[in-house]
């Protein structure tokens, strides 16, 4: 019994994502045996979710002019002669920054992460959990305001898919969820713990929105469906092939599972092959790739220069 003894501090650290990784299992085992402690952990989490719900809108409010000017001044002072390029002022970068912040605030996200030495397996599990966390926060964030819910609409799905594939560096696509009553409305690219990620947004007839987050993990060990609940947002996440997926929605676990299975099956079946054969895509790609200096792992490129 005493071997399982967990301190009060560790319960808080567990909730706050600040627990030493080797103690995590011990705490989880304890919580499974102690309903009162499990309820406390749950309530603490709910408190954090409430705080985010109340105050995260501040992130979307424009700063006052003096604060904005001081930010610019400070940027110049601290970064020395860094004439910050204007790209950071673009709305989507601000939004991306805000999302990183939302994530950082949730359970000690990656911005605030200290240097912790973990085994690769633990690291992978953690980064996948962080990825799922990012997915649910991004869901919360981008479904909160219809003005910027998607960066690019789904009117032209080929365009959307190839744009996001370029950002992620692998071939990604928004699966067809018509069978479960959801249609794709668009997507956006976001920074994640695993590099650039793609968020696809779907909507059903009741105006209920779900998002599918796709990222490229470093080591693509296939994993089964995992589930996490973040406030009122439920998320299933898994790894399939070279990609990690996280499906988030304000739905019950069972409802979401049904959709996750539909996503899984459609992804397994592969991307939609439409009229233009793959050869045509290849001709359009190389210029972009040279500019970016990024080598996609995707199979759509051929080694032209060699």
């Amino acid at each position: 019994m005493n071997a399982h003894r967990v301190t009060d501090d560790e319960l808080h650290a567990y909730v706050d994502g600040q627990l030493a990784p080797e103690r995590r299992l011990v705490v989880e085992r304890w919580l499974a045996d102690d309903p009162e402690a499990a309820r406390r952990a749950e309530d603490y989490r709910a408190q954090a979710a409430f705080l985010h719900e109340i105050f995260d809108p501040v992130l979307r409010e424009p700063a006052s002019d003096p604060v904005h000017d001081l930010t610019e001044k400070l940027r110049g002072r601290i970064a020395g002669n860094d004439n910050a390029p204007s790209w950071h002022a673009k709305p989507w970068v601000r939004m991306a920054a805000a999302v990183m912040l939302v994530v950082a605030g949730a359970g000690g996200g990656w911005l605030g992460r200290g240097a912790v030495n973990n085994s690769p397996a633990v690291q992978q599990r953690q980064s996948l959990a962080t990825f799922a966390e990012e997915a649910s926060q991004a869901h919360r964030f981008y479904t909160s305001d219809e003005r910027f819910q998607v960066e690019l609409g789904a009117d032209n799905q080929d365009e959307l898919n190839s744009w996001l594939s370029k950002r992620v560096g692998r071939e990604v696509f928004g699966p067809d969820l018509g069978k479960v009553g959801y249609r794709l409305i668009g997507g956006r690219s976001l920074p994640t713990d695993l590099g650039a990620g793609a968020q696809y947004m779907y909507i059903n007839d009741q105006n209920k929105r779900i998002t599918l987050f796709v990222g490229a993990p470093q080591a693509g060990n296939p994993s089964k469906f995992s589930f996490t609940q973040n406030g009122d947002v439920a998320t299933f996440y898994w790894v399939e092939g070279s990609l990690a997926y996280a499906l988030a929605g304000r739905l019950s676990k069972e409802e979401l599972l049904g959709i996750a299975e539909a996503v899984y099956n459609d992804v397994k079946a592969g991307p939609p092959r439409r009229d233009p054969p793959p050869q045509q895509d290849q001709q359009n790609q190389p210029q972009e790739q040279q500019q970016n200096g990024v080598q996609p792992v995707s199979d759509t490129q051929k080694p032209k220069d060699s």
């Binding site: 705080l51 109340i54 105050f55 995260d56 501040v58 992130l59 409010e61 700063a63 604060v67 930010t71 400070l74 940027r75 601290i78 970064a79 860094d82 910050a84 390029p85 790209w87 950071h88 970068v93 601000r94 991306a96 920054a97 805000a98 990183m100 912040l101 950082a104 605030g105 911005l111």
Partner: peptide, 25 residues
């Protein structure tokens, strides 16, 4: 450099959120 630009932006948004919460909205 560019990473720094976003980072500062993020931290200042964070300061604004904290200040709002601290000063009772």
């Amino acid at each position: 450099m560019s990473k720094f630009g976003v980072e500062l932006e993020v931290h200042i948004a964070s300061l604004r959120r904290y200040a709002r919460a601290l000063l009772r909205n």
